[in-house]
């Protein structure tokens, strides 16, 4: 069992099978990590605001009336599975598997991402029906500044997935396209990490302290 020979940045490494793509990817991937970390700062501060706002419900509806844990559970499983499938898409690309396999994993990821969004929007609509709108209280403002922002990221990821799918079809598996898929996979995994923070702090934290 030998270790992968060239491993110069986190996330999946293209390695020797894509020597030129590997070199091109190295620098931009590090840059992309810098972007992810600044994005993390945004989410982190929104978490901090949410924590300080949990009690600021101003007599409006609180976590117990608004949160639907069953739906959150489904969303968690969907997003986790999509994190696996985007990784498998990346591996299919790395090991030059037939294009059909790559398209399959891309498609599955897209469908999962979109179903996540559908469930999330349904949750927001159910919350709005119970009077849980952003301007109702500080707690709800903090909630709607954080969770839909994550949803927006997922929506952007879906759009990115579609664009890359088209590029793979039109341009073929060129170095540039491959390196873009590497970054998309990083972005997608990152979103799943943020989601873990959301279920732990926003949903369970809200239910415990709200």
């Amino acid at each position: 069992m030998k270790r992968a020979p060239t491993h110069s940045y986190p996330g999946i490494n293209l390695g020797e099978h894509h020597a030129s793509a590997h070199k091109a990817t190295e620098v931009v991937t590090f840059g992309f990590w810098v972007f992810l970390m600044s994005d993390l700062v945004y989410f982190g501060l929104m978490f901090a605001i949410y924590i300080t706002m949990i009690d600021a419900q101003a007599g409006g509806p609180g976590p117990h009336e608004l949160f639907d844990l069953k739906s959150v559970f489904a969303q968690t499983l969907i997003l986790l599975t999509s994190s696996l499938t985007v990784g498998l898409a990346m591996l299919a690309l790395k090991y030059n598997l037939p294009r059909g396999r790559i398209v399959l994993w891309f498609g599955v990821t897209l469908v999962l991402g979109l179903s996540f969004l559908v469930l999330e929007v349904r949750d927001f609509m159910a919350m709005a029906e119970k009077g849980g709108i952003p301007q109702r209280s500080g707690f709800l403002s903090a909630f709607f500044g954080l969770v839909p922002m994550h949803g927006l990221h997922v929506a952007t990821g879906c759009l990115w997935l579609i664009v890359l799918g088209i590029q793979l079809r039109v341009k073929g598996m060129t170095d540039v396209v491959i390196s873009r898929v590497v970054r998309l996979a990083l972005f997608w995994h990152f979103l799943d990490l943020i989601w873990i923070g959301i279920i732990t702090i926003v949903y369970f934290g809200g239910l415990t302290y709200g």
């Binding site: 491993h7 986190p10 996330g11 999946i12 990590w33 990784g87 990083l186 995994h189 799943d192 990490l193």
Partner: peptide, 18 residues
């Protein structure tokens, strides 16, 4: 997930990103 999906670990090569 950081270790298994994002491959962040203490391997020499990925240390800068760590």
């Amino acid at each position: 997930q950081l270790v298994y999906f994002l491959h962040i670990d203490r391997r020499r090569s990925s240390r800068e990103d760590l």
